[in-house]
């Protein structure tokens, strides 16, 4: 169970989306991805859903937005991502 952090806040569209999807595809069971971005990633939700990922988004600390991503049906990954998202 591990957190993978991906900061895309200094990338030009569509690189944040491309890098995030690549990182999500590489997630091992129980892992989740914490994506840091400077703005609302408006294309990300549909792309994640269509690829079988779930996510939760919140205002970030270091960047404007943080998105927590895990594989659909991965209970451990979901639990860890939600704990991280609801935490500080």
């Amino acid at each position: 169970m591990a957190e993978h952090v991906l900061d895309v806040s200094e990338l030009e569209p569509p690189e944040p989306l491309v890098r995030t999807l690549e990182a999500a595809e590489a997630l091992a069971p129980g892992d989740y991805l914490r994506m840091l971005h400077r703005r609302d990633p408006c294309l990300l939700p549909d792309n994640l859903r269509s690829r079988g990922f779930c996510f939760q988004q919140r205002p970030g600390v270091r960047t404007a937005v943080e998105v927590f991503i895990w594989r659909e049906g991965d209970a451990l990954g979901e639990q860890a991502a939600r704990q991280a998202c609801d935490g500080p």
Binding site: R39, D40, C42, L43, P45, D46, N47, S50, A64
Partner: peptide, 10 residues
Amino acid sequence: MNTARLSLSQ
């Protein structure tokens, strides 16, 4: 920055 949510189908 606020942007409206984009649905790919739209």
